[in-house]
């Protein structure tokens, strides 16, 4: 139970500390921009900025699904594997035409998500364990399907999907931003969106109010699977190929981006606009480190440390009664 005594505040009193705390991601955002533009001359070039957005869009799309899940208090470690599965499927089924292949891999991703959701809600197993299982299990499926080899597509039209752009905006970025806006609208204006907040904020209260808790959670797992599949398809299109090791660390990056964006680990709080902030900061760090010629391993180190620090902050500002 959360202690309620600490939150009695006078009405109409604009709380600057609270505002800063909630939007600290934008502060970090600005600091990152300043830091990298000082350190690397090319950082603020239009080309590089487009590049950051493009690189971020894959992680970003998955972050949408993950934000939904985390708002309702859940988690998905299998997104990276689902991404790989849909990528190899879309390439593998290219002979049946792009629409069939795309549809099929979206379906496969959503199905894995649904399976995760069913195990979590109906069997009542901890989401962490369920998705730890599917993380490796789905990866196994990918290996079985590919026989450990990379699949390459000869269909040039497919690679044009991710290469296309609307005006100056690359298609993956556009898809990401549209989904982000739609996603935010759903979170704010639909009973599903509000239901997620209620479930994550106070599970008992949500059940007591007659909210169909299981349904919402399953939907979010499906959404997580779907977004992972979409990211996988776009990734496959970008490379016009799919490797079975694709997305090995992506679930980690996605989770870090989402919690960095301020979504609470135990649910009930968060939104997609701030997730966007988290995604872009992560994108900048990866890009900037690259420009600085720092080993890509450092990224992983930073992600891990960010994650642990965020858990610590989460705990410190919302201490358990002990």
């Amino acid at each position: 139970m959360k202690s309620k005594t600490g939150i009695m505040k006078v009405k109409d009193n604009f709380d600057i500390w609270d505002f800063v705390q909630k939007n600290s991601i934008w502060l970090i955002f600005v600091i990152c921009i300043v830091f990298f533009s000082i350190m690397t001359p090319n950082f603020l070039r239009v080309r590089n900025i487009t590049n950051i957005f493009l690189q971020s869009s894959f992680i970003g799309i998955m972050s949408i699904g993950m934000t939904y899940l985390m708002i309702d208090g859940n988690f998905d470690l299998s997104m990276g594997s689902i991404m790989a599965l849909s990528a190899v499927l879309v390439i593998g089924f290219m002979d049946y035409g792009i629409p069939v292949a795309v549809l099929l891999s979206l379906l496969a991703g959503s199905a894995i998500g649904a399976l995760n959701g069913l195990f979590v809600t109906k069997a009542g197993i901890n989401a962490f364990i369920v998705t730890l299982g599917s993380m490796l299990g789905v990866r196994g499926l990918v290996y079985i399907y590919t026989g450990e080899r990379a699949l390459v597509s000869s269909e040039l039209a497919f690679s044009e999907i991710s290469a296309a752009s609307v005006g100056p905006i690359p298609l993956p970025v556009l898809i990401f931003l549209i989904m982000l806006i739609l996603g935010e609208l759903v979170l704010r204006y639909t009973s599903h969106g509000r239901g997620c907040y209620a479930i994550g904020g106070n599970y008992e209260a949500a059940v007591n109010a007659g909210i169909k808790v299981d349904k919402h959670i399953i939907i979010n797992f499906i959404l997580a699977g779907f977004t992972a599949a979409l990211a996988g398809i776009l990734m496959a299109s970008r490379m016009n190929a799919a490797t079975p090791t694709l997305g090995m660390e992506d679930h980690m990056i996605v989770i870090t981006a989402v919690v960095l964006g301020g979504t609470k680990l135990d649910g009930g709080f968060g939104n997609l606009i701030r997730t966007l902030g988290g995604v872009l900061v992560i994108g900048m760090i990866r890009n900037g480190m690259n420009l600085l010629n720092v080993h890509s391993y450092v990224n992983m180190l930073i992600m891990g440390l960010i994650l642990i620090s965020v858990v610590y902050m989460d705990q410190k500002f919302d201490p358990l009664e002990e």
Binding site: R194, Y197, A198, G200, G201, N202, A205, N208, G268, F269
Partner: peptide, 8 residues
């Protein structure tokens, strides 16, 4: 114990 969601 109130059955309310603080965040809403």
């Amino acid at each position: 114990e109130l059955s309310l969601v603080d965040e809403m």
